[in-house]
Design a protein around this nucleic acid. Structure first.
Lengths: 191, 191
DNA sequence: AAAGTGATGACAGGTTCTGTCATCACGGTA
DNA sequence: TACCGTGATGACAGAACCTGTCATCACTTT
């Protein structure tokens, strides 16, 4: 496997995250990243589609986690409870790598270009969950609604988790947010 | 007001939409757009922050519509019913300009870069609605949850509206989607 | 008529990203 | 041992995006 220095991809990702955090995303050039990783600009673009993607190549693993969790939920669970279980599993994983997740979020949140990429990745996660729900028998539009709503709740809960460093229970915040959403939707206009 | 040829901004936006539709977004250069509009590349970037933004400069008007509608809903309406009213107002406006909306959606949907921009604009709309809800007295996290969830439903309903050219009632699809979401959330796991 | 204002043109230059071909390390095969 | 194939990397050219800067032009104000 290893011919030159091993793990070129990982070295590029590490160097990029460091430089983006140290001096900002915009003021970091791809040439700087490759210099720190001991590679050339052209090689960067062989591993990552563009300068943003280097922060998002973990998305496939997240998709797998969500799809596997949805598939593993007992068949008699409701669509939204299934989505909830998947998001809580993701929340637990974030929890375990809190430091890295928070650093990465700080970098991404600081730049509109990176937030855009984050949002389309989140939309992809919703699509993955909707597919997994349909595989379990949830019909449309319920599957897509549950998945998209779940991602919307995740965004809100994640933001709360980030904003409160002393409150570490992301899965708990997720459960509470979904419960709160049920209340918001159950509230109807007075007669 | 008008010195040179009038409405440079509008001519640029029109030329861009035409070219993006005719030959694709990626294969259209900014120089081509400005040539069709009778201007120079530098002037394009004085009117629009980048090559994508030319398709999204109507967002401010949409924000105004949502904020005004939320502010105008009777004070005793629930948060989600208020969001619903705002989205239906936006849906009605889309309905009135169906042809342009559909053409623009076809262009945006065809390119990941443009979808990214669309998603961050939608996130901005959610923020605007959350602000307007807070101004009405809705507390957090209910305001943000209602706004984000509303946008999630809008995405689903809009996609359905686009996919069914013979079903023109976007406000109706929005109402139905929110009702469906209430059902999805009310469904609980069996004891 | 002169000065001021704001939009546009012209030009240089940095950065991102792609296409293309050469080079290198290693593994297999005779 | 010698040869060849494979896949990753280096080297280089170039298009397109985007920005900074200054000059120019049309129109307004005094």
């Amino acid at each position: 496997m290893g011919r030159w220095e091993p793990n070129a991809r990982g070295r590029l990702a590490q160097a990029a995250l460091e430089l983006y955090a140290e001096q900002g995303y915009e003021r970091t050039t791809v040439v700087e990243i490759t210099a720190r990783a001991g590679l050339t600009e052209r090689t960067f673009y062989r591993h990552f589609a563009d300068k943003r993607e280097v922060l998002f190549f973990g998305t496939e693993m997240v998709k797998d986690l969500l799809a596997r969790t949805v598939a593993g939920v007992p068949a008699d669970a409701s669509a939204m409870d299934t989505v909830s279980a998947a998001l809580e599993a993701l929340g637990a994983e974030f929890q375990e790598n809190a430091e890295r997740v928070r650093l990465r979020d700080a970098v991404v949140s600081a730049h509109a270009e990176l937030r855009e990429r984050e949002l389309i990745k989140l939309a992809g996660l919703a699509g993955t969950m909707a597919d997994a729900l349909r595989d379990r028998g949830t019909p449309e539009p319920a599957a897509t609604l549950a998945a998209e709503t779940g991602i919307a709740v995740f965004k809100v809960a994640f933001a709360r988790w980030i904003s409160e460093p002393g409150r570490p229970d992301l899965p708990g915040i997720l459960r509470a947010s979904i419960a709160e959403l049920r209340n918001v939707l159950a509230e109807r206009a007075p007669a």
